[in-house]
Simulated scan of single mutants.
Amino acid sequence: MIKETGNMQAKNLTCISEFQLLILSEDPDLQPVLFGLFLSMYLVAVLGNLLIILAVSSDPHLHTPMYFFLSNLSLADISFISTTVPKMLVNIQTHSRVISYVGCLTQMSLFAIFVCMDDMLLTVMAYDRFVAICHPLQYSVIMSPRLCGFLVLVSFLLSLLDSQLHSLMILKITSFKDVEISSFFCDPSQLLNLSCLNTFSDNIVKYLLAAIYSLFPISGILFSYYKIISSILRIPSSGGKYKAFSTCGSHLAIVCLFFGTASGVYLGSAVSHSPRNGAVASMMYTVVTPMLNPFIYSLRNRDIKRALRRFCQSSVK
């Protein structure tokens, strides 16, 4: 399974065939509870996001840029949560912490793709709201079907690039400090921290990726909402202000939930050295956020609720 090199330190490991993932609790009595809890959350997330996709695709009134991006976000969320939770459920059920080296790299690559897709799509949706509120007369011209498709394609290609760069960085690692991953899934940052050789070039690439895929999207979203709020404040009637702001309220809630929890994970890991606390925090944006997104949109959005009602009625008939 593991071969130790004689010329390196005792913990420098090569030829790793598997890693050990963190488990939330070692109490046997708590395992069925955890299994039931995470299975329920996973099913709610998948079914909720699937309903959003079906509602948008089945209702011609929702064939607009905003709902096109929302359905793509729901698809990304289904894929996102499916990269981490099923493996965790299997490990809980089999009382195992093991994930193979190939399985870990595959999970890490898929995780990087879909977390970046969430990142990019939330940024694109902020731009869509900016055009809708700040340039309403040119909205249908600017947000053409071709541009919408192009933005989703670029989001996917950028996410794929991020995933491939992380995979190349991991594949370059020839020796690891340990096989214990301080998370319940193969987090790219956790795997990079296990490298014995912390090279300057790898650090540059790591910080560059963090800037491109975190700071730029956040800056774009903040700038979009700065312009949106400025436009809303210029609307004379309070009813008009409420109507304008309500169109981006759901998106803003999801942005705060996703970026707030993700930032909390990485800032918290820098302050706290407790792996279990970090795993619980990671669960907020990898499991809870994809589960809550459909509720946020369906509860706050009258069009989605109407489309879901029509879809359910047609399904019953």
Rank of each mutant, 00 (worst) to 15 (best):
G220I: 02
L267T: 09
D202F: 05
A279W: 03
I235G: 08
F258R: 00
K243E: 15
P236D: 13
F295W: 11
T247A: 11
G239W: 10
S246V: 04
M284K: 00
Y226C: 10
C186S: 15
L233Q: 12
S214C: 07
V265R: 00
K172R: 13
F184W: 15
S182E: 15
S263L: 07
M291R: 06
A244W: 09
S230F: 07
V271D: 02
P290K: 06
L252C: 00
P236F: 10
S175L: 01
S219G: 12
D187A: 14
S250C: 08
S269W: 01
L222W: 08
L171F: 10
L257Q: 03
M284W: 03
I218A: 08
L208N: 09
T174D: 14
Y207Q: 10
M284Y: 02
A211K: 00
C186F: 08
R302A: 14
R276K: 10
V255L: 00
I229C: 05
S189W: 12
P275H: 01
K172N: 14
V255F: 06
K177L: 13
L222N: 05
P290C: 07
N301S: 15
S182L: 10
F200W: 07
V179Q: 14
K177Y: 13
V288I: 15
K206G: 01
S282H: 04
L191R: 11
K227M: 07
V280C: 04
S274V: 02
V287Y: 08
S224P: 03
S237L: 11
S263N: 07
F176W: 15
F245C: 08
T289Q: 06
C186P: 10
N277Y: 05
V287E: 05
S250D: 05
V265L: 11
S175H: 12
I170L: 12
A211Q: 00
L208G: 15
V287R: 05
P294F: 14
L194F: 07
R276C: 02
S238H: 14
P188C: 11
A262Y: 01
L197H: 12
S250L: 00
S282Q: 07
L222H: 01
S201R: 06
G240A: 09
P290V: 07
S298I: 14
N198T: 12
S231Q: 14
I221W: 03
A211G: 07
Y213C: 02
S189R: 12
L197V: 12
L194C: 10
T199G: 04
S230Q: 13
L233S: 11
S250I: 03
L267H: 06
K206R: 13
R234M: 11
S274G: 01
V179W: 05
T286N: 09
S231K: 14
I235E: 14
L208A: 14
L299F: 15
F258Y: 12
S214H: 09
F216H: 01
G239P: 08
R276N: 02
N203Y: 09
T199M: 01
C248Q: 00
